[in-house]
């Protein structure tokens, strides 16, 4: 690690874009870790495809953040030259892959939110955000279908797959509440009508999740205490390790191309 991190001027809109971009990048990177390790070739490719969709979403959002910040930073600067406390992603996105069930449940919980969110954001008066939402919505709709079908089969599958899926639900559940939070900076954008209040999607998310978990014969946990902190840079110990891997080459050889 020979390079220093950039300093970002986080206006509400820059912060907003970074939060969504970081969700997509970090979750996409997690999925890329399955490449060559998934239970079957078909799922190896499916997870890599989803990871690449998310990487594309991250790139669009980082470009937008760079444009809004107007400080000469590039999408690569945001991805590779910020430390963990500067990352604004949901804790859910950075949690380790665990087994296939945990990866699938993590994807399902996120996609069930993102699908609703991006579809609604297509109506944003900000044309760039509306365009990003339109592209993301199609991708995320498939991520939701893919993960939901697996949740059903894992939950309603063998004794072992049910146990693993149930463990994943229990492990991930306290990290789902963060998706619906908006701090003062984001609330300002909500009030201005630029973005939508994530809390407004809770009921619809809850219904999707309840329906699929019921079909999967998995018990939906009772609402309880929820983890938070990712949006303001207080991360689990896992993110630092992820970034160390992801950033090692650009930090060691800045500006390297291939």
């Amino acid at each position: 690690m020979t390079t220093t991190s950039i300093r970002v001027v986080e206006t509400p809109l820059v912060l907003y874009a970074l939060r969504r971009a970081d969700d997509a990048l970090v979750l996409g990177h997690r999925l890329s870790e399955w490449c060559g390790h998934a239970p079957a070739l078909e799922e190896d490719m499916a997870l890599a495809n989803i990871g690449l969709d998310l990487l594309g979403q991250a790139r669009s959002l980082y470009s937008y953040a760079a444009e809004m910040e107007a400080a000469g930073h590039t999408e690569d600067d945001f991805a590779f030259h910020r430390d963990a406390p500067q990352y604004r992603n949901l804790l859910l996105a950075e949690l380790p892959n665990g087994d296939f069930a945990r990866t699938i449940l993590r994807q399902f919980f996120y996609a069930a939110f993102a699908d609703l969110y991006w579809r609604a954001m297509m109506a944003s008066p900000d044309p760039t955000l509306a365009a990003i939402a339109a592209k993301s919505e199609k991708e995320t709709a498939y991520h939701l279908r893919h993960s939901a079908e697996w949740v059903i089969r894992l939950g309603d599958g063998t004794e072992e797959s049910h146990r693993r899926a149930a463990d994943a639900v229990a492990y991930l559940w306290p990290y789902t509440g963060e998706m619906f939070e908006a701090d003062a900076a984001e609330r300002a954008l909500v009030d201005a009508g630029t973005v939508l209040d994530p809390a407004g999607f809770r009921d619809a998310w809850d219904k999707t999740v309840s329906d699929i978990l019921a079909e999967a014969t998995l018990e939906k946990p009772a609402a309880g205490w929820m983890q938070q902190g990712g949006r303001s840079g207080r991360h689990s110990e896992h993110l630092g390790h992820l970034l160390a891997v992801m950033q090692s080459v650009p930090r060691a050889i800045p500006g390297a191309t291939w």
Binding site: E42, M45, A46
Partner: peptide, 10 residues
Amino acid sequence: TLALQAARDV
């Protein structure tokens, strides 16, 4: 269903 998904992905 999963075959159709996998076909799409592969």
